[in-house]
Simulated scan of single mutants.
Amino acid sequence: MPDRDTTSPPTNLVPAAPARAEIRVVNSRFIASIAPAASVDAARAFIAAVRAEMPDASHHVHAYLIGHGATTTLGASDDGEPPGTAGRPTLAVLRGSGLGDTALVVTRYFGGTLLGTGGLVRAYGDAAKAVLAIVPRAEKIERRVLELVVEYGAYEPVRRLAAAHAGSILAEQFAADVTLQVRLPLAQLAAFTRQLEELTAGRARVAELPDT
């Protein structure tokens, strides 16, 4: 089960895209794969995808860190390596990276030479460092999704208003009125709704939806 961590420093950086790096230690290959993961389910799906991509590997060691700020959810697995030699050092490197909402898998192809406890710790930690050195990073922007019901005459002005507040239109439906789903940065939400009320003379109907 994931445990809760309340000691990590605040961060709002996430991987901007997946990345992969490979190192060789003696005769073993260590392939580190990293991706953004906004939930434990997303992290598990990424781990499963890496396993499916390289089913003949000896081990798929993973670590994930979900969330930002004072509370994060952590997870790690040695995946058959000696306890404490793989998942823990991989997670330690991830925690020191400044990233949140991240899943990391280090896949090992055993080369026939035992590395020992210290060698495994260094190898998994170095593989994690290698991929963290190249993964692109971006600031995580918290967003909200609004469902708007407006009259036809307000349709184009509302689209322009959303664009002016860095919003994106997710869906539109045309019936007696126009229904739009708009995703907006949280920082823009108050100004957008205030200007929407002015634009529509208070006739727009607004509801917040889950952001999936």
Rank of each mutant, 00 (worst) to 15 (best):
A127I: 02
D126S: 10
P89V: 02
A92F: 01
S97P: 03
E151L: 15
S77V: 09
L148W: 09
K129F: 01
V131F: 08
G112N: 12
I134S: 11
S77P: 04
A128L: 09
G125V: 07
G111I: 11
L148F: 13
T113L: 11
V93G: 00
V149Y: 03
A128W: 01
G119L: 06
E139W: 05
G75T: 13
P82M: 08
K140R: 13
T113S: 01
A154I: 13
Y109Q: 03
P83C: 03
D126R: 04
V145D: 14
I134G: 05
E81M: 08
A128K: 01
S97Y: 06
R95P: 00
L120V: 06
V106N: 02
P136S: 11
A133Y: 07
V135Q: 04
A127W: 07
G125W: 01
L99C: 07
D126V: 06
G125R: 02
G96Y: 02
R122N: 02
D79K: 01
V106P: 03
L114K: 10
V149K: 15
V145T: 15
G87V: 06
L91N: 05
Y124Q: 11
L91P: 08
A103I: 05
V145N: 15
L99P: 10
Y109A: 01
R108N: 01
V150R: 13
S97A: 11
G75Q: 13
G96V: 06
F110S: 00
D79N: 11
A154M: 15
G100T: 06
T117F: 02
G118S: 08
D78E: 09
R144F: 12
A123E: 00
S97Q: 09
V121S: 12
A138Y: 13
P82V: 02
P136Y: 12
S77A: 13
L132T: 03
G75W: 07
E139I: 03
P136I: 09
R122P: 05
G118T: 07
L132E: 00
E81L: 09
L104K: 02
P82E: 01
E147F: 13
V149M: 08
L91D: 04
L99R: 07
L115N: 00
S97H: 06
R88P: 08
E81F: 02
G100K: 03
L132P: 05
G96H: 10
G100W: 05
S77I: 07
A123H: 00
A127E: 05
T90V: 15
G119A: 01
L115R: 02
T90C: 12
V149A: 14
V93D: 05
I141H: 10
V150L: 14
L74C: 08
V150G: 13
L91T: 01
R108T: 03
L120Y: 00
D126Q: 08
G80M: 05
R143G: 12
A92R: 07
S77Y: 04
T113Q: 03
G80K: 00
G116M: 04
A154L: 14
R95F: 04
G84M: 09
